[in-house]
Design a protein around this nucleic acid. Structure first.
Length: 656
RNA sequence: GCCAGCGUGGCGCAAUUGGUAGCGCACCCGACUUGUAAUCGGGCGGUUAGGGGUUCAAGUCCCCUCGCUGGCUCCA
């Protein structure tokens, strides 16, 4: 009685099934409520898709990656319907799923107000309750044009698709590759709404278990500054109320550990309005952490053969003309200071030209190479006003910047050892999970293609040797060089771009630097740029969020707070503190007239790694009692043992 | 740079339709001296980011500047 055979694929297992002609994917998976779409011969399809003989069919569950994307895309449609009902003049842009959610762009006469989101959510809930069916319909270009005559942006997409040019990011969900389709939202048999869309979609709106609109924003149509700005609404949707809740809690956790908030709470740094946007001052507690980070980094660099240099923050314009910065990135530089007789000085946006000056200060021999120059170099970049963001995107910041001058022969080994060094040092700061991007030649570049190819190959080889997983970012290199960016994953799973490593054969030529080789000829060195933290400010901000302010003891600004049970125990704790200070431990005795419980609370909120308490019992035994950040305690520890425990944790740079 | 939302004592927040700026924490003073997350009492502190305007009257309305937030664009 079965008229055709399909192959059902589930998590790698394959099974053949005989079904009647015209069976849909949905009927195949009837009974499994988690299945909301299917992959038929490799293509994602609606459950209403009619199968053909010999099809290979895989169920798509709503809680899979593909399933969530479909859910979110369908939720975007519900949003768009709600918007057009509440704001009839709204014209549709695009509405794709994105990581953790979706958005939909609209052209509206008056921008949305945050309060509009609540009204839209209410309407969306009604639409979901109505159990509208998502119904797919194939149309010709002309039919689509006729049906969407009132939607200028959709018409533009149809036009783009006809021209087979690359549409905007996200637009592929509207028009896709082949035939055009429109999805009708049907309330019973009545058409509630429709949208040009490739699909697939959930069977009905009722299949949306949980969603929330997040924020309104503006976005340029098709991602170009030259185009008009549309109003974008961001939302999120999940396979269950619990999954939505977990996501919202993750966002709340990210907010709690936002470095800008912790910077204030822990008194680490601030951005005085009087100084200017994006320009931080470091308070004593933040300053200690930064100093410890720098000291450790400096020591490791010295051990690895780097030499320390210092250079000024300002330079005459000629330097940046030679380097090419004024030709390529003058926009990103602070405007020049005009001095007498027409001399112009610029704040430096990068340290490299300065380091080249050091190299060029005298003749160089191949025997000196590789020459590794390192500086904590403070640079200033005129970031656009809308992008400044705490410590992670500042206008003044300090790079842990090094430039390595080497012979072409040395390039490969130098890159390889460099990568190992970088990753090793990042591990010491408590970061574990690394990936890399290899950014290759961009459209706008300088130099010879052969040189680019050589450098790209050397970078890739070093990634392989260092065994770091990487992806190739085609065309993402700097104009003067290909680069490797190292990304790290933080404690709550976010990825941050940190270190960069670039091969540069432009600057050596521009500055005409040379070395004398063994055969007596003059040769041009290669140059490698690298920053490990990227910027100290940014790295600090990332670490702060990674640790949620609870730094490991070696970095904590105050490592120990000693808390007397009563005033008469203060002198004893001062002796303990003196012993700790002898070991270089940063310790404070809390002699305020707060109650002991309050002192504990204070130390706890300041995320102090160790609290040492002492009362009559401890003093009798020559001991102290520990309270750790976890709330755990360890009582009656002999003072020398306590000191040793703390000093050891600091020396080993472990987290506790 | 563009769009939107914001900007109240150090921090977190309040202030009916425009009608004399309050609270908590922190801070200062006093009392209390207490074994693991907030003792009690008193006090100081704001020309409501800055400037201009409307009004009898503006933290509340309008304009400009600065700054912050979320996006977009950008990130050498």
């Amino acid at each position: 009685m079965s008229e055709m055979i399909v192959t059902v694929v589930r998590t790698g297992e394959r099974a053949e099934r005989g079904v009647t002609t015209g069976t849909t994917a949905g009927e195949l998976f009837q009974g499994d409520r988690a299945v909301i779409a299917a992959r038929v011969n490799g293509e994602l399809r609606d459950l209403a898709w009619a199968l053909s003989d010999a099809d290979e069919v895989e169920p798509i569950a709503i809680d899979s990656e593909d399933g969530r994307a479909i859910l979110r895309h369908s939720t975007a449609h519900v949003l768009a319907q709600a918007v057009q009902e509440l704001f009839p003049e709204a014209k549709l842009g695009i509405g794709p799923p994105v990581e953790n959610g979706f958005y939909y762009d609209f052209d509206v006469p008056k921008p949305f107000h945050p309060d509009d989101l609540e009204r839209l959510e209410t309407r969306m809930r009604q639409i979901i309750k109505e159990r509208q069916r998502f119904s797919r319909r194939v149309v010709t270009d002309d039919e689509a044009r006729a049906e969407l005559a009132d939607e200028p942006y959709k018409l533009e997409l149809i036009g783009l698709k006809s021209q087979a040019t690359g549409a905007a990011e996200g637009a592929s969900v509207e028009v896709g590759g082949g035939e055009l389709t429109i999805y009708d939202n049907l309330r019973g048999d009545e058409l509630a709404w429709k949208d040009l869309c490739r699909g697939p979609h959930l069977p009905t709106t009722r299949h949306i278990p949980a969603f929330k609109l997040m924020r309104v924003a503006a976005a340029y149509w098709r991602g170009s500054e030259k185009n008009p700005q549309l109003q974008r609404i961001y939302g999120t949707a999940w396979e269950s109320k619990d999954a939505l809740k977990a996501y919202l809690e993750m966002l709340a956790e990210a907010e709690r550990r936002d470095h800008r908030r912790l910077g204030v709470e822990l008194d680490l740094f601030s951005f005085p309005e009087e100084i200017g946007s994006g320009l931080a001052v470091w308070h004593p507690k933040g300053g200690i952490i930064r100093r410890v980070m720098e000291e450790y980094s400096r020591r490791r660099h010295e051990e690895a053969g780097y030499e320390f240099v210092y250079t000024p923050h300002l330079s005459k314009e000629g330097l940046f003309q030679t380097s090419g910065h004024l030709d390529w990135y003058a926009d990103g530089m602070y405007p020049p200071m005009e001095l007498d007789e027409g001399h112009r000085y610029y704040m430096k946006p990068m340290n490299c030209p300065m380091h080249v000056m050091i190299y060029r200060s005298r003749g160089r021999s191949y025997r000196e190479l590789p020459l590794r120059l390192f500086e904590f170099g403070t640079v200033y970049r005129y970031e656009k006003s809308g992008v400044v963001h705490g410590l992670t995107r500042a206008r003044g910041f300090t790079q842990d910047d090094a430039h390595i001058f080497c012979t072409p022969d040395q390039l490969q080994d130098e890159l390889s050892s460099l990568l190992g060094f970088v990753v090793g040092l990042l591990r010491d700061y408590g970061l574990e999970d690394f990936t890399a991007d290899l950014s290759t030649r961009p459209e706008k570049f300088v130099g010879e293609i052969e040189e680019w190819n050589t450098a790209e190959a050397a970078l890739e080889e070093s990634l392989k040797r260092a065994d770091i997983p990487y992806t190739i970012a085609e065309g993402e290199g700097a104009f003067y060089a290909p680069k490797i960016d190292i990304h790290v994953k933080d404690a709550i799973g976010r990825r941050w771009q940190l270190s960069t490593l670039q091969v540069d054969f432009q600057l050596p030529g521009r500055f005409d630097i040379e070395y004398q080789s063994a055969d007596g000829t003059r040769q041009r060195p290669y140059m490698i740029h690298r920053a490990l933290f990227g910027s100290e400010e940014r790295f600090f901000g990332i670490l702060l969020e990674h640790y949620a302010g609870a730094f490991p003891p070696w970095l904590a600004p105050v490592q120990v707070v000693a808390i007397p049970i009563a005033e008469r125990h203060e002198a004893y704790l001062e002796q303990v503190a003196a012993k700790l200070r002898e070991r270089g431990i940063r310790v404070e005795v809390d002699r305020s007239d707060d109650r002991m419980q309050k002192k504990i609370r204070n130390a706890q909120t300041h995320k102090i790694p160790y609290m040492l308490l002492a009362g009559d019992r401890d003093i009798e035994e020559g001991a102290v009692s520990f309270r750790y950040r976890s709330g755990e305690q360890k009582n009656g520890v002999p003072v020398d043992d306590a000191v040793a425990e703390i000093a050891d944790a600091v020396a080993r740079r472990i987290q506790i």
